[in-house]
Design a binder for these strands. Structure first.
Length: 438
RNA sequence: CCGGAGGUGGCAGAGUGGCCAAUUGCAUCAGACUGUAAAUCUGACGGGAUUUCCCUUCGAAGGUUCGAAUCCUUCCCUCCGGA
């Protein structure tokens, strides 16, 4: 009696239904990220109207503020934030990275753009020299110990230890429908030796997470909560496959594929000719890292478990991952891009890989543009407002801008994934993809 | 008319003899954003050649000086107080 059922496939792409304590989720699905108990700028009503089926919440942020015990006391996260649909909670593992190695190494989860995502693997640089200075904004750095992640709060500098057990306790207090085990994200710059030790530690963390979860879920706010395991790794076929074989043996309800995505320089030897030809675009390396990883790992995963790609959600990546058999996605990109003036456009309106299917609403070319952001889009924003108006609101930093922009971007991505699902059911995945990707 | 203060690049506002083509903020222009330290960050912002270079700028015109946005003279204009 699995929670997940596949109802159709088109080659490796799958359409399914995932049962949770707060309702069914039609997959493939995009889950908007609501880190602090809100998908920024949107109300639960907005989310429902946009077609969001499930959202993501965050252990680390909600633990620090307002506190998991308070939320539990107030009936759990669903009741607290007024969202009746399913919620998946991240374990805090990403913050161990974004407040740790990401700062120390000056890297991002997915390396793309100017540096082509190609990195020289090495030990963490000691001290200052970061690859990207803009990513380093202070002395707050989390540290990894065997017992868990030592955080320095980004709010007040206080110290906290997030163990696998603590992460589970918090997620159960929140009443999450899908909990994630605590893991450590690896940076593409970690040494081979560090990677080996980290992955073994993550195994121990995952097992501790599972043990605590199984022991306490029955008496928790949401006894039907599920636990997903995380498949960690770096850009290395043997490592990723090894991690895949490990995680499928642990009896999780689903598999989340995590980690950072970038190509180590040695990978260039094989693929250099493609880079030189330039036909695959500026994000070739990041795309290659994601695609290859999924190709290595997916065949080793059991077909009956839902597969979740952590933190992946740009248009190209959604097509690439769904094509390879992924079912669930979460990503901050639609919401953050919206707030930063980057609005999604479809191929009919010049959306393409090279512009990430976005336009920058602040551009002067939209000053007198009466068209909708993405003419043809049926979201509330596109039905009612012009690019010129959105541009004005954005430049004036008017609060309405954030809501209208977020409505559009979330609708765009949620609906794109929904249309991909329908295409899979109709065995039309390839032809739909061709309309979007070259 | 008298007394006082002041006129700096789109705006505000530093600089008060060389390190000033001129701090900074805003505005503008462009770029970035993938398990949210993000309504954030980066770059450009007199013109041209486009590593260290040249030309035209700090109300206007003269002057002092090796050298002036910075000192002097005259003129124009603005603001405050008194007639």
């Amino acid at each position: 009696m699995s929670n997940f059922k596949i109802i159709a496939t088109d080659k490796k792409a799958r359409a399914g239904v995932l049962k949770t304590a707060h309702g069914e989720v039609q997959t493939p699905v995009f889950m908007p990220v609501g880190t602090q108990g809100t998908v920024k700028a949107l109300s639960p009503d907005d989310l429902e109207i946009l077609g969001a089926q499930i959202i993501l919440g965050n252990t680390y942020h909600l633990y620090l503020r307002p506190g998991n015990k308070l939320i539990k006391k107030l009936g759990g996260l669903h009741q607290f934030m007024g969202w009746e649909g399913p919620i998946l909670t991240d374990s805090g593992g990403f913050q161990a990275f974004s407040l740790g190695a990401m700062i120390e190494h000056g890297v991002k989860k997915i390396q793309s753009g100017r540096d082509d995502g190609i990195l020289q693997r090495q030990d963490p640089p000691q001290g200052k020299k970061n690859r990207d200075e803009s990513l380093t904004r202070g002395p707050l750095v989390s540290k990894i110990t065997e017992n868990g992640v030592q955080f320095v709060s980004h709010l007040d500098g206080s110290k906290h230890l997030l163990t696998p057990e603590k992460s589970m306790e918090i997620q159960l207090d929140l009443g999450s429908d899908i909990c994630l085990v605590l893991d450590e994200l690896l940076s593409p710059l970690h040494s081979v030796e560090y990677v080996r030790q980290s992955l073994e530690r993550t195994h121990r963390w995952e097992l501790r997470s599972k043990e605590y979860f199984q022991k306490h879920v029955g008496k928790s706010l949401n006894p039907r909560s599920q636990l997903f395991g995380i498949l960690q790794g770096v850009f290395d076929e043997e490592i990723r496959k090894h991690e895949a074989r490990w995680v499928v043996q642990q009896d999780f309800s689903g598999i989340s594929i995590g980690g950072s995505f970038a190509l180590p320089s040695e990978a260039l030897a094989k693929e250099g000719d493609l880079v030189d030809s330039g036909v695959l675009g500026v994000d070739w390396a990041a795309a290659k890292a994601i695609d290859k990883t999924m190709e290595w790992v997916i065949p080793l995963l059991p077909g009956e478990l839902p597969r979740h790609a952590l933190g992946i959600g740009e248009v190209r990546d959604l097509f690439a991952c769904i094509e390879r058999g992924l079912d669930m996605f979460d990503c901050v990109a639609p919401m953050r891009r919206a707030r930063n003036g980057s609005l999604y456009i479809s191929p009919a309106n010049r959306g393409k890989e090279s512009n990430k299917f976005t336009l920058n609403i602040s551009r002067s070319e939209f000053k007198e543009d009466k068209k909708a952001i993405d003419p043809g889009c049926s979201c509330y924003t596109c039905q009612n407002f012009s690019r010129a108006y959105l541009r004005h609101l954005y430049l004036a930093k008017e609060l309405l801008y954030y809501r209208l922009a977020t409505i559009h971007n979330v609708f765009f991505i949620v609906n794109l994934v929904k249309s991909i699902r329908e295409a899979i059911i109709d065995k039309q995945f390839t032809s739909l993809k061709k309309k979007w990707i070259i």
